[in-house]
């Protein structure tokens, strides 16, 4: 029946017009206004809390980075650089800490692959930092959810002090103090947990030299 078909079409046209109206309001106007105010009022945060070195951004303090040695020929996986505090393992991208491919390992808690990789990480970190395997903290052997976690636990940061101090030729107390200065407590005293931002720590470490 043409008349009822007409009605159905009219009905859907109205729905489409309503959708377009909302697209303009909530999809165009709303983000534009928020971006405008954000850029004016909180430009640092709105643009990614960037850390700049001589005017050039070298990091976002929110996004973790790899601190590896350059790949040698024939090497497939990069080796961690002894002079940097190392971040948590990352599942983002093939080499980790790739912001264009954020994500987690998604391995189940009893997955044999995960069990194997945790064993391997524990041994590697213990050997790398020269500590007994049993004292390697949990964040050093587990990948974060985003793969971009910039933080490690204070325990893991302290664990790395000896190695880093040695690599830079700094005295340990100075490095320990640097770590202690970078421990962020809980927000408002009770939200989240204590952490050390590796990106900022390494940046300040480099600057302190």
């Amino acid at each position: 029946m043409p008349s009822s078909l007409n009605r159905v079409i009219r009905h859907h046209l109205a729905a489409l017009r309503m959708l377009l109206v909302f697209t303009v309001i909530t999809g165009i106007a709303y983000p534009l206004v928020v971006v405008g105010i954000a850029q004016a009022a909180f430009p640092h945060q709105a643009n990614g809390s960037l850390i700049k070195d001589r005017g050039r951004p070298v990091a976002s303090s929110l996004i973790g980075q790899n601190f590896n040695l350059p790949l040698n020929k024939g090497q497939t996986s990069p080796q961690p650089d002894r002079k940097w505090f190392q971040p948590r393992p990352s599942a983002a991208g093939t080499t980790g800490y790739d912001p264009t491919s954020s994500g987690a390992s998604n391995l189940g808690p009893n997955n044999p692959d995960l069990v194997a990789v945790i064993k391997a990480r524990r041994a590697a970190v213990a050997a790398f930092d020269g500590v007994p395997p049993s004292s390697v903290p949990v964040d050093a052997v587990t990948a974060s959810g985003s793969g971009l976690d910039p933080d490690i636990s204070p325990a893991y940061a302290y664990e790395q002090v000896n190695r880093v101090a040695k690599a830079w030729g700094l005295n340990r107390p100075a490095v320990r103090k640097l770590v202690a200065d970078h421990i962020q407590g809980r927000n408002l005293g009770f939200l989240g947990q204590d952490r050390v931002n590796v990106v900022e720590l390494n940046h300040d470490l480099a600057a302190s030299k």
Binding site: V138, V141, D151
Partner: peptide, 14 residues
């Protein structure tokens, strides 16, 4: 093995 259920979780949240 890891000593905690931090796989897939962020350090800042715990």
């Amino acid at each position: 093995l890891a000593g905690g259920m931090m796989e897939g979780k962020e350090q800042r949240f715990g």
